[in-house]
Design a protein around this nucleic acid. Structure first.
Length: 115
DNA sequence: CATTTGACAGGAA
DNA sequence: CTTCCTGCCAAAT
């Protein structure tokens, strides 16, 4: 049985380019609609490219998991803490992938994955 | 086993 | 529209 965070990673990895998901949705898909917070906690343990080389993750078996954290946003379409170079950079990337932006926030009505 | 923490969400002021 | 407060959950210590 995968732990909650593992499920979260699995789900986030399946988010297609040009689409985003809110923490709430991820939590729901992971099995706990109210665990949006826990999702964030799991994300900070985030086995992304940066921590990919971390020995810790290798020991945990999380090494081939590249989590597109930039495709996970808050319920209002804004991002909170993820920054692998700066929020602005993240926005650029998302735009490039086809995510529609509404000012400095993501337009969830258009770019929300499976609605 | 109990406490603390955190990349959240939603409502109220 | 922005800021603060409260509720909720899983993981780490």
């Amino acid at each position: 049985m995968k732990s909650f965070s593992q499920k979260v990673y699995d789900i986030v990895k399946q988010i297609p380019p040009g689409k985003v998901l809110t923490y709430q949705d991820v939590a729901k898909l992971a099995g706990s609609p109210k665990a949006s917070r826990a999702v964030g906690s799991a994300m900070k343990n985030n086995p992304d490219e940066s921590s990919l080389h971390s020995r810790e993750n290798l020991l945990k078996g999380i090494h081939k998991s590249i989590i597109p954290c930039h495709r996970v946003v808050g319920s209002n379409g804004a991002m909170h803490g993820f920054a692998f170079g700066g929020e602005s950079v993240k926005i650029e990337i998302l735009k490039k992938e086809g995510v529609v932006f509404k000012g400095d926030k993501v337009d969830l009505n258009l770019s929300r994955w499976k609605k």
